[in-house]
Design a protein around this nucleic acid. Structure first.
Lengths: 156, 156
DNA sequence: ACTTGACCTTACCATCATGGGAAGCCCTAC
DNA sequence: GTAGGGCTTCCCATGATGGTAAGGTCAAGT
């Protein structure tokens, strides 16, 4: 199995397979005489593991931990569970931050009549800040702002 | 006002102010004879606008559009509202993707007793794939996977 | 006047996971 | 033997942000 076949079989792009090898997430693959990487089903299984963990939002760093546990026959399931719970918590935080942004945006969008006239409460809010909004100080977004940017919430 | 004061007054780091200038998001600031950047209240207001838009999760690209509308006295509020609605939609998508990850993880974590024994349904799921899970095919996460990675959902 | 410390300047590097592309080698089918 | 596709490595880009280093500037205190 060369890298293209392993890619199709695992759902990980060839580019990423090489990358994972380069950062040591997976062991270096065998090579043919010509220098082509060669993969066995064992390695494809490993790649699938990684792929699924990425699909659940785990960072490569966390996946390293998961792989170590997976390969440790004397692991304790508590350790695996803890990593999963951490991931859940981190997702929760980010979801809540985005939810807060969305709530604020929804309020603003509702208040904007969205017609041909230039007057717009959305722009007004951006200019004057949330403190000048029509609602009485509830539902502030500022609590989320710095954390939000720290968590990388912007769309790429 | 030098850059440090403008930073404090706007909530945008000096580093970011220079960056926004370098990419043309804001016009180049005036300079003292010594080369120090100088800011007026008008420019601080602009920075605050940007800061608040970032807090709502807008990308720099979208902020460019918002700024253009803001400075266009003949704008139509419909245009502003449309950008806001797009942002809401994009947040919705990403939230839903993360929610799906979280739901899957919660199911798996619930099924894991989390004790000293090595057997772990979380690892089993990562190895065998979601198709081998105990639930009957509902609540699949795969639909989200590629989009999830495309949307940059991993924790940094 | 001189020093000190805080501030400014630019320039470069790092993040994180991923894709794109170029230049060159290899393999298979015709 | 050649054409097309796949492989190799190497470099670059993304997006928004922080860090650091080397050097200039300013204001206050001695």
């Amino acid at each position: 199995m060369n890298i293209g076949e392993a890619s199709k079989a695992s759902g990980v792009s060839a580019k990423m397979i090489r990358y994972y090898e380069s950062i040591g997430l997976i062991p270096a693959a065998g090579r043919t005489v010509a220098g082509y990487r060669v993969y066995t089903m064992t390695e494809v299984q490993l790649l699938r593991f990684i792929r699924r963990a990425r699909d659940l939002g785990f960072s490569v760093e966390k996946i390293e931990e998961l792989l170590a546990l997976w390969q440790d026959r004397s692991r304790q399931s508590a350790d695996v569970k803890q990593i999963a719970l951490q991931q859940i918590a981190s997702l929760e935080v980010r979801i809540r931050e985005m939810q807060a942004m969305m709530d604020t945006l929804r309020h603003l969008a509702e208040a904007c009549c969205g017609d041909h006239r230039p007057d717009c409460p959305i722009l007004a809010d951006l200019v004057n800040g949330p403190d000048h909004g029509s609602n009485g100080g509830q539902d502030e977004r500022t609590s989320v702002s710095r954390a939000g940017r720290a968590a990388g919430l912007q769309a790429h």
